[in-house]
Amino acid sequence: MDNVVNNCMNLHLLNRSPFSSRVYEDVLNAMGSEDQLLLIEDGVNGALSSAGHYLAGLEGRLFALREDLESRGLSGRCSESVIVVDVDGFVALTEAADKTISWF
């Protein structure tokens, strides 16, 4: 490939709760300094205020999917540092990123 950008931005998708799975450690290990993380499905448990220590250091780059928060009754319980997006926001994040990488 001849159009590689070394400082490209990847979007990481995590669908496992950090309370029950350590996959989040692998995500953090693979995230560049500009990369973004979107929490989906059970991953949105990581958006709880009480989960802040798991995903520290991602201010402005940590997102959670509104639909999955709402279906779990967690909308009002999110950490302030988490940016909530709906499915259209999910699409926009995908468009803005060079690649998406799923973690499960």
């Binding site: 400082n7 290990n29 693979a30 560049g32 060079d98 990488i101 973690w103």
Partner: peptide, 17 residues
Amino acid sequence: AHADVVALTQCFSRVLS
């Protein structure tokens, strides 16, 4: 090492997990 894992995901144009 850690920094190289990140660089690896960046220098491939597609990633499957």
